[in-house]
């Protein structure tokens, strides 16, 4: 029955467009057609209702086609660009960071080298100073020792002289003593005899 109504409506509409009748009439017929097929759909299983396939396919083709074009031309291109720009930025930043790190490393290396050099130098100076100091001290000591030795030599020779002097005096004292003794005993003796006697004893 619904099918019959639709059939009528379709035929009617065809006639209307053929005749070029008023718009009001045409819309009423269209409405009738909609109602008729609407009633028809409740009966069957909607996904298998072939009468809806045409419009579904058309709209799907339009919307999916539009979606594809928008995605390919605008949206995905833009997101791809964003990601690429970010990737480039990250890479350049990383390269920059790497460059900075290398410079830091170089600076640290140079600093350490200089530090080692300075340490070496300080060590050398200390060594030099120490050896200089000890050389000076040695020289001074040698000087002082030589002075002391000289003084000691002088003193010794003076002692020697004094000793020899003293011994010489001892001879004359002994001769005088011997002469005095002899004269006390009662003899006479000359200084010369006394001296030679002492000399004889000494040479004994």
């Amino acid at each position: 029955m619904a099918g019959e109504a639709q059939n009528e409506a379709v035929v009617d509409e065809g006639a209307v467009t053929h005749d070029g009748a008023t718009d009001a009439h045409a819309t009423t017929d269209t409405h009738a057609l909609t109602e008729a097929s609407g009633g028809h759909e409740v009966v069957g299983f909607p996904p298998f209702d072939a009468s809806t396939f045409g419009s579904q396919l058309l709209w799907l083709a339009i919307t999916f086609g539009a979606l594809y074009v928008i995605m390919a031309r605008v949206a995905l291109r833009r997101i791809g660009e964003i990601l690429e720009v970010r990737q480039d930025r990250i890479e350049s930043d990383l390269a920059e960071a790497d460059r900075m790190r290398q410079r830091t490393d170089q600076a640290i290396e140079a600093y350490e080298k200089e530090l080692a050099e300075a340490r070496q130098k300080a060590h050398g100076i200390a060594e030099q100073t120490r050896s200089d100091n000890s050389a000076a001290a040695d020289a001074r000591r040698a000087e002082v020792e030589a002075e002391l030795a000289k003084q000691m030599g002088a003193a010794e020779s003076r002692i020697q002289a004094t000793k020899a002097d003293a011994l010489k005096n001892v001879d004359s004292i002994a001769a005088e003593t011997a002469a005095a003794l002899v004269s006390q005993i009662g003899g006479t003796v000359t200084d010369k005899q006394a001296q030679s006697a002492v000399q004889k004893v000494l040479e004994g």
Binding site: S51, T52, F53, G54, S55, L58, W59
Partner: peptide, 10 residues
């Protein structure tokens, strides 16, 4: 033939 309509699906 087939009918072209604007539906809830569209």
């Amino acid at each position: 033939g087939f009918e072209i309509a604007f539906t809830n699906s569209a």
